[in-house]
Design a protein around this nucleic acid. Structure first.
Lengths: 203, 203
DNA sequence: CGGCGCGTTGATGCAAGTCAAATTTAGTGG
DNA sequence: CCACTAAATTTGACTTGCATCAACGCGCCG
Protein backbone atom coordinates (compact mmCIF):
# COMPACT_ATOMS: atom_id res chain seq x y z
CA UNK A 1 0.00 0.00 0.00
CA UNK A 2 3.04 2.24 0.10
CA UNK A 3 2.56 3.47 -3.43
CA UNK A 4 -1.10 4.19 -3.00
CA UNK A 5 -0.44 7.45 -1.19
CA UNK A 6 1.46 9.00 -4.05
CA UNK A 7 -1.46 8.66 -6.43
CA UNK A 8 -4.36 9.23 -4.07
CA UNK A 9 -5.48 12.15 -1.98
CA UNK A 10 -8.21 12.24 0.64
CA UNK A 11 -10.51 15.23 0.63
CA UNK A 12 -13.72 16.56 2.11
CA UNK A 13 -16.46 18.27 0.15
CA UNK A 14 -18.95 20.76 1.58
CA UNK A 15 -22.67 19.94 1.29
CA UNK A 16 -24.11 21.16 -1.99
CA UNK A 17 -20.72 21.56 -3.63
CA UNK A 18 -20.37 20.30 -7.20
CA UNK A 19 -17.02 18.53 -7.32
CA UNK A 20 -17.29 17.01 -10.79
CA UNK A 21 -18.41 19.30 -13.57
CA UNK A 22 -19.85 17.98 -16.80
CA UNK A 23 -17.59 18.78 -19.74
CA UNK A 24 -14.41 19.32 -17.74
CA UNK A 25 -11.29 17.26 -18.37
CA UNK A 26 -11.73 13.82 -16.83
CA UNK A 27 -8.36 13.72 -15.12
CA UNK A 28 -9.40 12.23 -11.81
CA UNK A 29 -11.27 9.35 -10.42
CA UNK A 30 -12.96 9.18 -7.00
CA UNK A 31 -14.03 6.68 -4.40
CA UNK A 32 -16.70 7.78 -1.93
CA UNK A 33 -15.54 7.02 1.60
CA UNK A 34 -18.39 8.66 3.51
CA UNK A 35 -21.60 10.52 2.67
CA UNK A 36 -23.80 10.65 -0.43
CA UNK A 37 -23.55 12.25 -3.83
CA UNK A 38 -25.94 12.81 -6.66
CA UNK A 39 -24.86 12.33 -10.26
CA UNK A 40 -26.71 14.30 -12.91
CA UNK A 41 -26.65 15.78 -16.38
CA UNK A 42 -28.01 19.13 -17.45
CA UNK A 43 -29.48 20.55 -20.61
CA UNK A 44 -28.73 24.13 -21.73
CA UNK A 45 -32.19 25.31 -20.69
CA UNK A 46 -31.85 23.88 -17.20
CA UNK A 47 -33.64 20.57 -17.56
CA UNK A 48 -31.92 18.18 -15.21
CA UNK A 49 -31.77 14.40 -15.08
CA UNK A 50 -30.34 12.72 -12.02
CA UNK A 51 -28.80 9.51 -13.30
CA UNK A 52 -27.89 8.03 -9.95
CA UNK A 53 -26.63 8.38 -6.42
CA UNK A 54 -23.27 7.41 -5.01
CA UNK A 55 -22.83 6.03 -1.51
CA UNK A 56 -19.86 5.07 0.59
CA UNK A 57 -17.75 2.57 -1.35
CA UNK A 58 -18.93 3.66 -4.78
CA UNK A 59 -16.62 4.62 -7.61
CA UNK A 60 -17.07 7.87 -9.46
CA UNK A 61 -15.60 9.33 -12.57
CA UNK A 62 -15.57 6.39 -14.94
CA UNK A 63 -15.54 8.35 -18.16
CA UNK A 64 -14.99 6.90 -21.59
CA UNK A 65 -13.97 10.16 -23.21
CA UNK A 66 -11.58 12.94 -22.34
CA UNK A 67 -14.20 14.87 -20.38
CA UNK A 68 -16.78 13.97 -17.73
CA UNK A 69 -20.22 13.27 -19.15
CA UNK A 70 -21.94 14.22 -15.88
CA UNK A 71 -21.73 16.40 -12.81
CA UNK A 72 -21.55 15.20 -9.23
CA UNK A 73 -22.66 17.08 -6.16
CA UNK A 74 -22.29 16.37 -2.45
CA UNK A 75 -25.69 15.78 -0.84
CA UNK A 76 -24.32 16.26 2.64
CA UNK A 77 -20.86 16.29 4.21
CA UNK A 78 -18.82 14.10 1.91
CA UNK A 79 -15.47 12.37 2.09
CA UNK A 80 -13.68 11.27 -1.04
CA UNK A 81 -10.50 9.61 -2.11
CA UNK A 82 -9.16 11.04 -5.33
CA UNK A 83 -6.89 9.22 -7.78
CA UNK A 84 -5.24 10.52 -10.85
CA UNK A 85 -6.30 8.63 -13.94
CA UNK A 86 -2.74 7.48 -14.54
CA UNK A 87 -2.41 6.46 -10.92
CA UNK A 88 -5.46 4.28 -11.26
CA UNK A 89 -3.79 2.31 -14.02
CA UNK A 90 -0.79 1.59 -11.83
CA UNK A 91 -3.00 0.75 -8.88
CA UNK A 92 -4.91 -1.74 -10.94
CA UNK A 93 -1.70 -3.54 -11.76
CA UNK A 94 -0.71 -3.50 -8.11
CA UNK A 95 -4.02 -4.71 -6.67
CA UNK A 96 -5.76 -7.31 -8.81
CA UNK A 97 -8.65 -7.50 -6.35
CA UNK A 98 -9.41 -3.86 -7.11
CA UNK A 99 -9.95 -4.88 -10.70
CA UNK A 100 -12.63 -7.31 -9.63
CA UNK A 101 -14.35 -4.72 -7.46
CA UNK A 102 -14.34 -2.28 -10.35
CA UNK A 103 -15.98 -4.79 -12.65
CA UNK A 104 -18.58 -5.72 -10.06
CA UNK A 105 -19.39 -2.09 -9.49
CA UNK A 106 -19.62 -1.43 -13.22
CA UNK A 107 -21.92 -4.43 -13.73
CA UNK A 108 -24.14 -3.39 -10.87
CA UNK A 109 -24.44 0.12 -12.27
CA UNK A 110 -25.15 -1.14 -15.75
CA UNK A 111 -28.01 -3.31 -14.49
CA UNK A 112 -29.40 -0.42 -12.51
CA UNK A 113 -29.10 1.83 -15.56
CA UNK A 114 -31.23 -0.61 -17.54
CA UNK A 115 -33.89 -0.64 -14.84
CA UNK A 116 -33.91 3.12 -14.92
CA UNK A 117 -34.21 3.30 -18.70
CA UNK A 118 -37.32 1.11 -18.45
CA UNK A 119 -38.67 3.38 -15.73
CA UNK A 120 -37.94 6.61 -17.63
CA UNK A 121 -39.00 5.33 -21.03
CA UNK A 122 -42.08 3.28 -20.25
CA UNK A 123 -43.50 3.71 -16.76
CA UNK A 124 -46.31 6.04 -15.68
CA UNK A 125 -45.90 8.56 -12.86
CA UNK A 126 -47.61 6.20 -10.37
CA UNK A 127 -45.36 3.33 -11.39
CA UNK A 128 -42.27 5.52 -11.13
CA UNK A 129 -43.12 6.65 -7.61
CA UNK A 130 -43.92 3.10 -6.51
CA UNK A 131 -40.60 1.89 -7.97
CA UNK A 132 -38.79 4.74 -6.26
CA UNK A 133 -40.32 4.07 -2.84
CA UNK A 134 -39.47 0.37 -3.09
CA UNK A 135 -35.92 1.20 -4.16
CA UNK A 136 -35.52 3.36 -1.07
CA UNK A 137 -37.00 0.56 0.99
CA UNK A 138 -34.55 -2.00 -0.39
CA UNK A 139 -31.66 0.40 0.14
CA UNK A 140 -32.40 0.63 3.82
CA UNK A 141 -30.29 -1.83 5.79
CA UNK A 142 -33.07 -2.59 8.26
CA UNK A 143 -35.78 -2.99 5.61
CA UNK A 144 -38.06 -0.82 7.70
CA UNK A 145 -41.42 0.01 6.19
CA UNK A 146 -40.88 3.56 7.35
CA UNK A 147 -38.55 5.14 4.82
CA UNK A 148 -36.72 8.41 4.89
CA UNK A 149 -36.49 10.27 1.59
CA UNK A 150 -32.91 11.49 1.20
CA UNK A 151 -33.89 14.40 -1.03
CA UNK A 152 -36.37 17.15 -1.74
CA UNK A 153 -39.33 16.94 -4.15
CA UNK A 154 -37.13 18.59 -6.76
CA UNK A 155 -34.59 15.81 -6.33
CA UNK A 156 -37.21 13.10 -6.67
CA UNK A 157 -38.68 14.80 -9.73
CA UNK A 158 -35.30 15.09 -11.44
CA UNK A 159 -34.55 11.48 -10.59
CA UNK A 160 -37.84 10.16 -11.97
CA UNK A 161 -38.18 12.43 -14.99
CA UNK A 162 -41.26 14.21 -13.61
CA UNK A 163 -42.16 17.64 -12.21
CA UNK A 164 -42.39 18.45 -8.51
CA UNK A 165 -46.15 18.97 -8.85
CA UNK A 166 -46.67 15.52 -10.30
CA UNK A 167 -44.51 13.97 -7.56
CA UNK A 168 -46.55 15.73 -4.89
CA UNK A 169 -49.91 14.85 -6.42
CA UNK A 170 -48.98 11.24 -7.10
CA UNK A 171 -47.65 10.72 -3.59
CA UNK A 172 -50.92 12.07 -2.20
CA UNK A 173 -52.91 9.85 -4.55
CA UNK A 174 -51.03 6.79 -3.27
CA UNK A 175 -51.82 7.91 0.25
CA UNK A 176 -55.53 8.25 -0.57
CA UNK A 177 -55.42 4.74 -1.99
CA UNK A 178 -53.99 3.50 1.31
CA UNK A 179 -50.71 2.30 -0.14
CA UNK A 180 -48.59 4.74 1.88
CA UNK A 181 -48.79 7.32 4.65
CA UNK A 182 -46.89 10.58 4.36
CA UNK A 183 -45.80 10.87 7.99
CA UNK A 184 -43.62 13.88 7.38
CA UNK A 185 -42.52 15.54 4.19
CA UNK A 186 -39.43 13.33 3.94
CA UNK A 187 -40.77 10.30 5.80
CA UNK A 188 -43.18 7.81 4.31
CA UNK A 189 -44.67 4.61 5.68
CA UNK A 190 -45.30 1.82 3.21
CA UNK A 191 -48.70 0.35 4.10
CA UNK A 192 -49.21 -2.12 1.30
CA UNK A 193 -46.00 -3.54 -0.06
CA UNK A 194 -47.62 -6.11 -2.38
CA UNK A 195 -49.77 -3.43 -4.00
CA UNK A 196 -46.73 -1.16 -4.43
CA UNK A 197 -44.71 -3.99 -5.94
CA UNK A 198 -47.53 -4.84 -8.31
CA UNK A 199 -47.78 -1.21 -9.34
CA UNK A 200 -44.01 -0.80 -9.71
CA UNK A 201 -43.68 -3.69 -12.12
CA UNK A 202 -46.61 -2.34 -14.07
CA UNK A 203 -49.34 -4.95 -13.94
CA UNK B 1 -4.62 -18.94 -26.21
CA UNK B 2 -4.66 -22.68 -25.72
CA UNK B 3 -6.92 -22.55 -22.71
CA UNK B 4 -9.37 -20.18 -24.30
CA UNK B 5 -11.02 -22.95 -26.27
CA UNK B 6 -12.01 -24.97 -23.24
CA UNK B 7 -14.09 -22.13 -21.82
CA UNK B 8 -15.42 -20.56 -24.99
CA UNK B 9 -17.70 -21.78 -27.71
CA UNK B 10 -18.50 -20.13 -31.02
CA UNK B 11 -22.09 -20.15 -32.15
CA UNK B 12 -24.46 -18.70 -34.71
CA UNK B 13 -27.88 -17.29 -33.94
CA UNK B 14 -30.76 -17.09 -36.41
CA UNK B 15 -32.26 -13.64 -37.11
CA UNK B 16 -34.98 -12.77 -34.64
CA UNK B 17 -33.91 -15.40 -32.15
CA UNK B 18 -33.79 -14.38 -28.49
CA UNK B 19 -30.62 -15.89 -27.10
CA UNK B 20 -30.62 -14.23 -23.69
CA UNK B 21 -33.86 -14.33 -21.76
CA UNK B 22 -34.57 -11.90 -18.94
CA UNK B 23 -34.84 -13.72 -15.63
CA UNK B 24 -32.91 -16.82 -16.63
CA UNK B 25 -29.79 -17.92 -14.80
CA UNK B 26 -26.87 -15.73 -15.84
CA UNK B 27 -24.43 -18.55 -16.44
CA UNK B 28 -22.84 -17.30 -19.64
CA UNK B 29 -21.21 -14.31 -21.07
CA UNK B 30 -20.98 -13.41 -24.77
CA UNK B 31 -18.85 -11.46 -27.18
CA UNK B 32 -20.44 -10.44 -30.46
CA UNK B 33 -18.16 -11.42 -33.33
CA UNK B 34 -20.43 -10.47 -36.24
CA UNK B 35 -23.88 -8.96 -36.68
CA UNK B 36 -26.12 -6.86 -34.46
CA UNK B 37 -28.25 -7.52 -31.40
CA UNK B 38 -30.83 -5.56 -29.54
CA UNK B 39 -30.95 -5.58 -25.76
CA UNK B 40 -34.29 -4.92 -24.11
CA UNK B 41 -36.47 -5.34 -21.05
CA UNK B 42 -40.15 -6.12 -20.97
CA UNK B 43 -43.03 -5.33 -18.65
CA UNK B 44 -45.77 -7.90 -17.94
CA UNK B 45 -48.27 -6.03 -20.13
CA UNK B 46 -45.90 -5.99 -23.09
CA UNK B 47 -44.39 -2.54 -22.78
CA UNK B 48 -40.87 -2.82 -24.10
CA UNK B 49 -37.78 -0.69 -23.60
CA UNK B 50 -34.77 -1.27 -25.80
CA UNK B 51 -31.80 -0.32 -23.64
CA UNK B 52 -29.15 -0.66 -26.29
CA UNK B 53 -27.66 -2.38 -29.30
CA UNK B 54 -24.65 -4.64 -29.48
CA UNK B 55 -22.29 -4.67 -32.44
CA UNK B 56 -19.28 -6.71 -33.38
CA UNK B 57 -16.75 -6.55 -30.55
CA UNK B 58 -19.27 -5.76 -27.84
CA UNK B 59 -19.62 -7.71 -24.61
CA UNK B 60 -22.95 -9.04 -23.50
CA UNK B 61 -24.22 -10.60 -20.33
CA UNK B 62 -22.61 -8.48 -17.67
CA UNK B 63 -25.09 -9.25 -14.93
CA UNK B 64 -24.67 -8.28 -11.32
CA UNK B 65 -27.13 -10.81 -9.96
CA UNK B 66 -27.75 -14.48 -10.50
CA UNK B 67 -30.11 -13.89 -13.41
CA UNK B 68 -30.03 -11.74 -16.53
CA UNK B 69 -31.79 -8.40 -16.13
CA UNK B 70 -32.51 -8.13 -19.86
CA UNK B 71 -33.18 -10.09 -23.02
CA UNK B 72 -31.07 -10.05 -26.16
CA UNK B 73 -32.22 -10.79 -29.67
CA UNK B 74 -30.37 -11.20 -32.95
CA UNK B 75 -31.28 -8.44 -35.39
CA UNK B 76 -29.87 -10.34 -38.35
CA UNK B 77 -27.53 -13.27 -38.79
CA UNK B 78 -25.40 -13.19 -35.68
CA UNK B 79 -22.15 -14.79 -34.59
CA UNK B 80 -21.23 -15.04 -30.94
CA UNK B 81 -18.52 -16.34 -28.72
CA UNK B 82 -19.86 -17.77 -25.50
CA UNK B 83 -17.91 -18.06 -22.24
CA UNK B 84 -18.95 -19.67 -19.04
CA UNK B 85 -18.96 -17.22 -16.16
CA UNK B 86 -16.27 -19.23 -14.39
CA UNK B 87 -14.24 -19.39 -17.56
CA UNK B 88 -14.31 -15.64 -17.80
CA UNK B 89 -12.69 -15.34 -14.40
CA UNK B 90 -9.82 -17.59 -15.47
CA UNK B 91 -9.50 -15.79 -18.76
CA UNK B 92 -9.19 -12.47 -17.01
CA UNK B 93 -6.30 -13.78 -15.01
CA UNK B 94 -4.66 -15.11 -18.15
CA UNK B 95 -5.09 -12.00 -20.29
CA UNK B 96 -4.65 -8.75 -18.41
CA UNK B 97 -5.36 -6.76 -21.55
CA UNK B 98 -8.85 -8.28 -21.61
CA UNK B 99 -9.43 -6.70 -18.22
CA UNK B 100 -8.68 -3.30 -19.67
CA UNK B 101 -10.99 -3.86 -22.64
CA UNK B 102 -13.76 -4.91 -20.27
CA UNK B 103 -13.40 -1.77 -18.21
CA UNK B 104 -13.31 0.43 -21.28
CA UNK B 105 -16.42 -1.23 -22.62
CA UNK B 106 -18.19 -0.87 -19.27
CA UNK B 107 -17.26 2.81 -19.03
CA UNK B 108 -18.41 3.48 -22.56
CA UNK B 109 -21.74 1.79 -21.87
CA UNK B 110 -22.19 3.65 -18.61
CA UNK B 111 -21.67 6.99 -20.33
CA UNK B 112 -24.10 6.02 -23.05
CA UNK B 113 -26.61 4.89 -20.42
CA UNK B 114 -26.45 8.33 -18.83
CA UNK B 115 -27.07 10.02 -22.16
CA UNK B 116 -30.06 7.76 -22.67
CA UNK B 117 -31.48 8.48 -19.23
CA UNK B 118 -31.41 12.18 -20.07
CA UNK B 119 -33.10 11.46 -23.38
CA UNK B 120 -35.79 9.24 -21.87
CA UNK B 121 -36.39 11.35 -18.79
CA UNK B 122 -36.23 14.88 -20.15
CA UNK B 123 -36.28 15.19 -23.92
CA UNK B 124 -39.30 15.84 -26.14
CA UNK B 125 -40.21 13.56 -29.05
CA UNK B 126 -38.56 15.93 -31.55
CA UNK B 127 -35.39 16.07 -29.48
CA UNK B 128 -35.35 12.29 -29.15
CA UNK B 129 -35.65 11.72 -32.87
CA UNK B 130 -32.97 14.32 -33.63
CA UNK B 131 -30.66 12.68 -31.08
CA UNK B 132 -31.39 9.28 -32.58
CA UNK B 133 -30.69 10.35 -36.14
CA UNK B 134 -27.40 11.94 -35.11
CA UNK B 135 -26.43 8.84 -33.16
CA UNK B 136 -26.99 6.75 -36.27
CA UNK B 137 -25.00 9.28 -38.24
CA UNK B 138 -22.06 9.12 -35.85
CA UNK B 139 -22.21 5.34 -35.83
CA UNK B 140 -21.71 5.21 -39.57
CA UNK B 141 -18.06 4.72 -40.43
CA UNK B 142 -18.26 6.98 -43.48
CA UNK B 143 -20.20 9.76 -41.73
CA UNK B 144 -22.50 9.91 -44.72
CA UNK B 145 -25.43 12.27 -44.41
CA UNK B 146 -27.58 9.51 -45.88
CA UNK B 147 -28.27 7.14 -43.03
CA UNK B 148 -29.82 3.72 -43.01
CA UNK B 149 -32.14 2.94 -40.10
CA UNK B 150 -31.27 -0.53 -38.85
CA UNK B 151 -34.74 -1.17 -37.46
CA UNK B 152 -38.49 -0.75 -37.95
CA UNK B 153 -40.63 2.06 -36.53
CA UNK B 154 -41.51 -0.27 -33.66
CA UNK B 155 -37.82 -0.66 -32.89
CA UNK B 156 -37.21 3.09 -32.95
CA UNK B 157 -40.26 3.68 -30.76
CA UNK B 158 -39.14 1.11 -28.17
CA UNK B 159 -35.65 2.58 -28.22
CA UNK B 160 -36.83 6.16 -27.70
CA UNK B 161 -39.70 5.52 -25.29
CA UNK B 162 -42.35 6.65 -27.79
CA UNK B 163 -45.13 5.08 -29.88
CA UNK B 164 -44.78 4.20 -33.56
CA UNK B 165 -47.34 6.86 -34.46
CA UNK B 166 -45.35 9.58 -32.72
CA UNK B 167 -42.15 8.40 -34.42
CA UNK B 168 -43.83 8.52 -37.81
CA UNK B 169 -45.44 11.90 -37.26
CA UNK B 170 -42.30 13.47 -35.81
CA UNK B 171 -40.11 12.19 -38.63
CA UNK B 172 -42.52 13.71 -41.14
CA UNK B 173 -42.59 16.97 -39.20
CA UNK B 174 -38.77 17.15 -39.38
CA UNK B 175 -39.05 16.54 -43.11
CA UNK B 176 -41.58 19.35 -43.51
CA UNK B 177 -39.17 21.62 -41.63
CA UNK B 178 -36.43 20.73 -44.14
CA UNK B 179 -34.16 19.09 -41.58
CA UNK B 180 -34.31 15.67 -43.21
CA UNK B 181 -35.63 13.83 -46.26
CA UNK B 182 -37.23 10.42 -45.89
CA UNK B 183 -35.82 8.82 -49.01
CA UNK B 184 -37.17 5.39 -48.23
CA UNK B 185 -38.80 4.03 -45.11
CA UNK B 186 -35.44 3.01 -43.65
CA UNK B 187 -33.26 5.59 -45.35
CA UNK B 188 -33.05 9.22 -44.32
CA UNK B 189 -30.95 12.09 -45.59
CA UNK B 190 -29.85 14.67 -43.05
CA UNK B 191 -30.27 18.07 -44.67
CA UNK B 192 -29.44 20.39 -41.81
CA UNK B 193 -26.97 18.94 -39.35
CA UNK B 194 -26.53 22.12 -37.26
CA UNK B 195 -30.27 22.43 -36.78
CA UNK B 196 -30.52 18.76 -35.80
CA UNK B 197 -27.65 19.12 -33.35
CA UNK B 198 -29.21 22.19 -31.83
CA UNK B 199 -32.51 20.36 -31.49
CA UNK B 200 -30.90 17.23 -30.06
CA UNK B 201 -29.15 19.06 -27.25
CA UNK B 202 -32.39 20.86 -26.48
CA UNK B 203 -31.81 24.55 -27.11
C1' DC C 1 -43.48 39.86 12.63
C1' DG C 2 -42.55 39.33 7.74
C1' DG C 3 -40.12 37.41 3.98
C1' DC C 4 -38.46 33.27 1.84
C1' DG C 5 -37.96 28.51 0.48
C1' DC C 6 -40.48 24.48 -0.05
C1' DG C 7 -44.54 21.89 -0.64
C1' DT C 8 -49.38 21.45 -1.82
C1' DT C 9 -53.48 22.35 -4.46
C1' DG C 10 -56.25 24.05 -8.34
C1' DA C 11 -57.22 25.47 -13.18
C1' DT C 12 -55.87 25.03 -17.72
C1' DG C 13 -52.98 23.64 -21.83
C1' DC C 14 -50.66 20.67 -24.76
C1' DA C 15 -47.60 16.88 -26.24
C1' DA C 16 -47.95 12.44 -26.85
C1' DG C 17 -50.96 8.38 -26.50
C1' DT C 18 -54.97 5.80 -28.20
C1' DC C 19 -58.12 4.16 -31.52
C1' DA C 20 -59.18 3.57 -36.18
C1' DA C 21 -58.95 3.89 -41.09
C1' DA C 22 -56.27 4.66 -45.33
C1' DT C 23 -52.12 3.69 -47.79
C1' DT C 24 -47.83 1.95 -48.83
C1' DT C 25 -44.55 -1.82 -48.80
C1' DA C 26 -43.20 -6.57 -48.75
C1' DG C 27 -44.02 -11.22 -49.47
C1' DT C 28 -45.99 -15.33 -51.91
C1' DG C 29 -47.70 -18.28 -55.20
C1' DG C 30 -49.54 -18.73 -59.77
C1' DC D 1 -44.26 -10.49 -63.99
C1' DC D 2 -48.40 -9.75 -61.86
C1' DA D 3 -52.35 -10.52 -58.63
C1' DC D 4 -53.37 -11.15 -54.05
C1' DT D 5 -52.51 -11.02 -49.13
C1' DA D 6 -50.47 -9.72 -44.98
C1' DA D 7 -47.69 -6.58 -42.53
C1' DA D 8 -45.81 -2.09 -41.77
C1' DT D 9 -46.39 2.75 -42.05
C1' DT D 10 -48.85 6.87 -42.41
C1' DT D 11 -52.60 9.84 -41.46
C1' DG D 12 -56.65 11.56 -39.01
C1' DA D 13 -59.79 12.30 -35.02
C1' DC D 14 -60.00 12.23 -30.38
C1' DT D 15 -58.45 11.45 -25.45
C1' DT D 16 -55.51 11.89 -21.61
C1' DG D 17 -51.62 12.15 -18.43
C1' DC D 18 -48.53 15.06 -17.17
C1' DA D 19 -46.73 19.86 -17.58
C1' DT D 20 -47.49 24.55 -16.93
C1' DC D 21 -49.05 28.53 -14.70
C1' DA D 22 -50.73 30.43 -10.58
C1' DA D 23 -52.35 30.75 -5.80
C1' DC D 24 -51.93 29.41 -1.34
C1' DG D 25 -50.19 27.36 3.12
C1' DC D 26 -46.65 26.48 6.22
C1' DG D 27 -42.64 26.15 8.78
C1' DC D 28 -38.21 28.56 9.64
C1' DC D 29 -35.15 32.09 10.71
C1' DG D 30 -33.37 36.79 10.83
Amino acid sequence: MARLAQYSHRLSVAPGKTFIQEGEAATDFYIVTAGHTKIFTLMPDGRRQITGFGQSGDFLGLASGATYAFSAEALGPLSLCRFSRTGLGLLRREFPELELRLMEEASRELVQAQRRMLLLGRKTARERLASFLLEQHHLSPTKEIVIHLPMSRTGIADYLGLTIETVSRTLNALQREMMITITQVTQITLLNLPALEHLARGG
